[in-house]
Measured scan of single mutants.
Amino acid sequence: ASVAVIAAGTQGNIFATSALRSMRFLQILRMVRMDRRGGTWKLLGSVVYAHSKELITAWYIGFLVLIFASFLVYLAEKDANSDFSSYADSLWWGTITLTTIGYGDKTPHTWLGRVLAAGFALLGISFFALPAGILGSGFALKVQEQHRQKHFEKRRMPAANLIQAAWRLYSTDMSRAYLTATWYYYDSILPSFRELALLFEHVQRARNGGLRPLEVRRAPVPDGAPSRYPPVATCHRPGSTSFCPGESSRMGIKDRIRMGSSQRRTGPSKQHLAPPTMPTSPSSEQVGEATSPTKVQKSWSFNDRTRFRASLRLKPRTSAEDAPSEEVAEEKSYQCELTVDDIMPAVKTVIRSIRILKFLVAKRKFKETLRPYDVKDVIEQYSAGHLDMLGRIKSLQTRVDQIVGRGPGDRKAREKGDKGPSDAEVVDEISMMGRVVKVEKQVQSIEHKLDLLLGFYSRCLRSGTSASLGAVQVPLFDPDITSDYHSPVDHEDISVSAQTLSISRSVSTNMD
């Protein structure tokens, strides 16, 4: 405001104040949320940038038409019409005319000016109207692209899951042992070998009828009888010197917790746990005396209480009078009846079946994303299906024409109403129809010849004498029936064969 007042002088105070007050009108834009329509302006900018070359070309040609039209109309009207006294007036008329506004304040009066105005109007309006069409088509394409992008975003994750499931299904095939990355992934998420051994031990116990592997080994086996189970490696608790092959000598807290839970599941009659010990102070733990958990001091820290809870689970003690015997301790020893080589084939089979199920689920979810969402998608899918159906029908028609023997030239002739090819031409065609016709002709010829021969033979049998045999009239074959199959017997006289037959029969009768 200060700059405006200084620039306008003393009389500019009122002007500056009114100008600043008129800017209050811009507050109405906040009512229509114009300040939060950044996406709309961004869309407009992207459309203009995408079609910038077309817009520049249309505007450039339109500007050239405007300059030439205004100049030529000015030359034609400057002497006869006072409205075109300057080139600026003519340029104003050209702008209003070519933009199809047409105020009518300035019009050419001479015939030359009117002809020039009409010609440049028809030429220039087309170029001035091009930017509107370019922007409209650009907006339509952009909206369609955003629509497809939205659908693509919805299909991206199911497609990625389907590709991942397909690759993992491919890589978990037993015949592709060189693909090891997927197996490394499952090695990292699978439970430890100790848990798998416990699982298979329970399965084997159920197969043995509820007997433990130790009891199965204690059962008497006759001499020479084959053992029911192959000899396997035996594993004891981590306190002993022997372990399962492939295990580490260090046992983690999870393994100890699972070991304690498995020992508690063996039965309360074979294992008696004394009350857990509780320390009397955060600094020292008295293991010899058993106290109640309700006497825990409230001033303990979080670490002390955590250690106390761990001691409740991981440090059970047995009383002296209830101490288990050596046999019970041997039964409680952890027996590992299986090795990694025995378990891994079954584990890989389970993983393979899981990968198949996940692949089928991913495939079903991806197919669900291909379903249409709204009416536009339904129409688009219907149009695509219609085009596909037309293509299939056209391909089927082409194959039928190839089989029947109607080529493209014959199809055009039928469409024009011309006469089709004759039967002889159809026979000569190298097509399925021509071959079928040729075979039918040959079969008819053979059938006719057989009928003639059978009739001749029956007449010979009825006559009974050589004289009557020679008097029999043998009809000749019709050459038209034989089609294109020409037998060497067709052109010979059958009477010669009949005479030869009669001579042979007379000779045979004389010999008798």
Score class of each variant (00 low, 15 high):
A310S: 07
E285Q: 10
T234A: 04
R364S: 08
I379L: 11
L453M: 15
L198V: 05
L273P: 05
S333R: 09
T482S: 10
K376M: 11
A320D: 15
S325T: 12
D322H: 09
M389I: 02
A329S: 13
L169R: 07
R411S: 03
G209A: 09
E330A: 11
P230A: 05
P191T: 11
L469M: 14
D374A: 02
T318A: 12
M278R: 13
K376T: 03
I403L: 10
H202D: 14
T349S: 14
Y184S: 09
S299I: 15
P324T: 05
R309P: 12
V489A: 05
H386Y: 12
S227P: 10
E415Q: 10
L501F: 07
V375G: 11
L312M: 14
D423Y: 06
E285G: 05
A310T: 14
K412Q: 04
F359L: 12
Q335R: 06
A206T: 08
E321K: 11
M344I: 09
P279H: 11
T241S: 12
F477C: 03
A197P: 10
T294S: 05
R462H: 09
H236R: 13
S504Y: 14
A424G: 11
I379N: 09
D428E: 11
I494N: 12
I253F: 07
L314F: 15
R205G: 12
V474E: 04
F477Y: 04
K270T: 14
I257F: 01
A225S: 11
S458P: 13
S333I: 10
F366V: 15
R392W: 01
R414Q: 06
S483P: 04
S171C: 09
K363T: 14
G407R: 14
Q444L: 08
Q204L: 14
H486N: 03
S504C: 15
L452M: 08
Y229D: 10
G210S: 11
T182P: 06
L198H: 13
G260V: 15
S319T: 06
P316H: 01
E447D: 15
S458W: 14
D322V: 15
S468T: 11
E429G: 14
E289V: 13
P372A: 03
K270E: 15
R228H: 03
E447G: 13
G267C: 13
M174T: 06
P408L: 13
V221I: 06
I379M: 03
R217W: 06
K449E: 03
R459C: 10
A274P: 14
V437G: 08
R212G: 14
K416T: 03
T339M: 09
R207S: 07
V426A: 10
Q271E: 04
I356L: 12
E337K: 07
D401G: 14
S502C: 09
C244W: 05
E368V: 07
R364T: 03
L387M: 10
K365Q: 09
V328I: 11
K441R: 12
G210D: 09
L360M: 06
L273R: 07
R217G: 07
V437L: 10
I257T: 03
F308L: 15
S281A: 14
I354F: 11
A424E: 07
S325A: 14
K358T: 01
H386P: 13
D173H: 06
L357H: 12
S171A: 03
D428H: 13
V404E: 05
P324H: 09
N510I: 05
V232L: 10
K416Q: 04
Q204R: 09
R207P: 06
V361L: 12
R237G: 07
G420A: 08
M389L: 02
G405A: 03
G470S: 04
E331Q: 08
A413D: 04
A166T: 13
S175G: 07
Q397K: 02
Y457C: 07
D377H: 03
A413G: 10
G239D: 09
V443M: 04
K348M: 05
R406L: 03
P421T: 15
Q271P: 14
A290V: 14
G417R: 08
W167C: 00
K298T: 06
S249I: 15
P282L: 13
R307S: 15
R307H: 07
Y334D: 05
I257L: 08
D418A: 13
S299T: 09
S506A: 04
T234S: 12
A181S: 09
G239S: 06
I356M: 12
R205W: 06
H386R: 12
K376Q: 08
G252A: 05
Q402E: 09
L199F: 12
R264W: 05
I379S: 13
P275T: 12
A323D: 10
A362S: 08
L469Q: 05
P238A: 06
Q263P: 11
G210R: 06
H236N: 05
G417S: 08
H202Q: 12
A320S: 15
V350D: 01
P324S: 06
V340A: 10
E201V: 10
A413S: 14
G407A: 14
D377N: 03
S301I: 14
A329P: 05
I481T: 04
S188T: 11
R352S: 12
A320V: 15
S504T: 12
D388G: 14
L370V: 02
M259K: 11
T291N: 10
I343S: 14
V347E: 12
P421L: 12
Y334S: 09
A323G: 05
A165D: 11
G434A: 07
E321G: 15
S299R: 14
D418H: 15
V427L: 06
D341E: 08
G470R: 14
T180I: 11
P421R: 10
V296L: 08
S431C: 09
Q297R: 08
V203G: 11
S463T: 14
R352H: 02
P226A: 13
A323T: 15
K394M: 00
R256G: 15
T318I: 08
I393V: 10
E380Q: 14
D173V: 01
S227F: 11
